[in-house]
Design a protein around this nucleic acid. Structure first.
Lengths: 136, 136
DNA sequence: TCTTGACCTAAAGTCGACTTGAAGTAATAG
DNA sequence: CTATTACTTCAAGTCGACTTTAGGTCAAGA
């Protein structure tokens, strides 16, 4: 498959695919003349990357996850990434709950609403904890 | 409270606080000489911003949420932000589940594992749907 | 009185993640 | 044969979110 096809299937511009290749997130399987040729499973790889990006992961983080494709031992990397995601999910849930509450709260200023403040406080405690634990 | 105090309490450098003020995310209540003076509730506001940043929200998004502090009618903004967060949470959960599965999966290449691929597919369907719905 | 430290502004620099532009190649359609 | 179209490289440009730097103000302590 050429870069145009990969671009269509992944919904990412060719320039992005070249950039990802340069950064080592994907590989072309070879060339036909000048043109890159990609394997069929590139779509899934790119889907994974898109998903990760939309979830706020950096290209470096994603590269680490994808590297473990080849190497056996990287279960730990995957599991620790999963744990980081858990903590990120907690933040988002706190934000979401805070916003939903705020939308229905009669307090004139949300920062005076005790429930809202409690959600904030819990969320930031959780954050501090996970930063301590993972030395982020 | 001066900027140094606000910085300590929020665990953000003064330069960041000045930057946030410039971008309209926070306000100083006045000046004492040259020095900015912040109200006491600045800590909560900054906690909210930090939380949002750590969850991957942009300063503009956060500004929108915070603006609705003053104006009554913005329940809809808050609720739609909460919905966006729900979709972001779904992505993260899919990633997390995918990673946890991958860590225990015997398949040599995760992109050959049907369960992993199913998680990816579901996640991206959800993504496409939410992009359609919210015209992101 | 002088100096130190915490603040100030405005402008420039940095970093990640791309995008755009200029200049070239290669197959294909008219 | 030439023009179009899709690709190529490499360098430069952009954008968000900050950080750093240079030069200045001001209150407090030795």
């Amino acid at each position: 498959m050429d870069i145009g096809e990969a671009s269509k299937r992944s919904n990412l511009p060719p320039s992005t695919l070249r950039y990802y290749e340069e950064k080592g997130l994907i590989k072309s399987i070879g060339r036909s003349g000048l043109k890159r040729v990609f394997a069929d499973d590139i779509s899934e790889r790119l889907a994974f990357i898109s998903l990760g990006r939309s979830a706020g992961l950096s290209l470096d983080e994603l590269k680490n996850m994808l590297l473990s494709d080849n190497i056996q031992v990287d279960r730990e990397v995957l599991l620790s990434k999963a744990d980081e995601l858990d903590s990120r999910i907690s933040h988002l849930e706190s934000m979401r709950d805070g916003l939903r509450h705020a939308a229905n709260c009669p307090a004139p200023n949300h920062f005076e609403c005790p429930k809202f403040l409690r959600l904030l406080k819990i969320a930031n405690q959780r954050w501090s904890k996970s930063r301590r634990d993972h030395k982020l």
